[in-house]
């Protein structure tokens, strides 16, 4: 369970809050999506929840360890995939120790579950973006933490890789009864795998609730400042929900373009 109460974050030496007085709860076993425009503080919120950033007010309570999948890691050294994944075990390895047999077994198991065991000996610097994302997910799984936190796990991936990553997250979360918290720029990804969502409409206006309510047409249109349609399609007898932005139809006084 993750409980966030009255959380605020100011950039250092800045009076203006990135977000203010944020409260929400992620029950055990929930898959929780965080959405919002660039610069609204999704990543900041995630890092505050993880304790990587200190909030200016409010508090975060987390029951259990977290496995974190950052938004792309710069790797200066060509470690092998297995070496990277075994680092997920660091929490349980004392400062003067190195990973042992059990740690390597857990790392291999994590890779195997994602169908990536064949990559174990490859240098990570030679992997594609989608492959590297899977390695970082394997690292989080290897930590065996009950809470999985992912920062834009599907950004910069093509459709096929988006599907693989989302599918892997959903499957592992179900099998291990994990609590999952992730940020995304794709509402349909939240609709696909999440049951609850938080939409960050403004610094002091964040709405949490069941994913279908939070990501309705009206809510999404307000969230991104652009008309957004949610369409129901039929694929081989199965209903499919998809989200379509209407490009070029934004209000002239729409949101200013903000760097992430």
């Amino acid at each position: 369970m993750i409980t966030v109460e009255g959380l605020s974050y100011h950039l250092p030496r800045d009076r203006c809050a990135v977000f203010r007085d944020l409260s929400f709860r992620v029950p055990d076993g929930a898959v929780f999506a965080i959405l919002g425009p660039n610069g609204r503080g999704k990543t900041t919120l995630l890092k505050t929840v993880l304790g990587l950033l200190r909030p200016s007010a409010g508090r975060v309570r987390i029951d259990g360890a977290t496995g974190y999948v950052p938004q792309g890691t710069h790797l200066p050294f060509p470690y092998s995939v297995l070496d990277i994944v075994v680092m997920g075990r660091a929490r349980g390895i004392a400062a003067f120790r190195s990973p042992g047999k059990a740690d390597y077994a857990a790392a291999r198991r994590a890779l195997d579950r994602l169908g990536f065991l064949g990559f174990a000996d490859r240098p990570v610097t030679e992997l594609s973006g989608g492959e590297r994302q899977m390695v970082l997910i394997a690292r989080a799984i290897a930590s065996e933490a009950p809470i999985l936190v992912l920062d834009e796990p599907t950004s910069a991936l093509d459709f096929r890789n988006q599907d693989r990553v989302l599918g892997a997250i959903a499957r592992i979360a179900r099998e291990d009864r994990l609590t999952v918290l992730f940020t995304t720029h794709y509402p349909q990804h939240a609709l696909h795998v999440a049951d609850t969502a938080l939409a960050m409409h403004g610094p002091a206006d964040a709405r949490a609730g069941p994913v279908a309510d939070i990501l309705s047409e009206a809510e999404l249109t307000d969230l991104y400042g652009l008309p957004i349609r949610v369409a129901r399609l039929d694929h081989a007898g199965r209903p499919v929900r998809t989200v379509a932005p209407v490009f070029g139809a934004a209000e002239p006084a729409g949101l200013p373009l903000v760097a992430p």
Binding site: K47, L50, G51, L52, A65, T66, Y68, P70, T73, H74, L75, P76, F77, Y79, D83, M87, G88, A90, R91, I93, A95, R97, S98, P99, S143
Partner: peptide, 18 residues
């Protein structure tokens, strides 16, 4: 082994529990 973890960067290392 800790040096390996630190070489991933501060945030990664901290998120890994170091």
């Amino acid at each position: 082994f800790r040096i390996n973890i630190l070489s991933l960067g501060d945030e990664d290392a901290q998120a890994l529990g170091i």
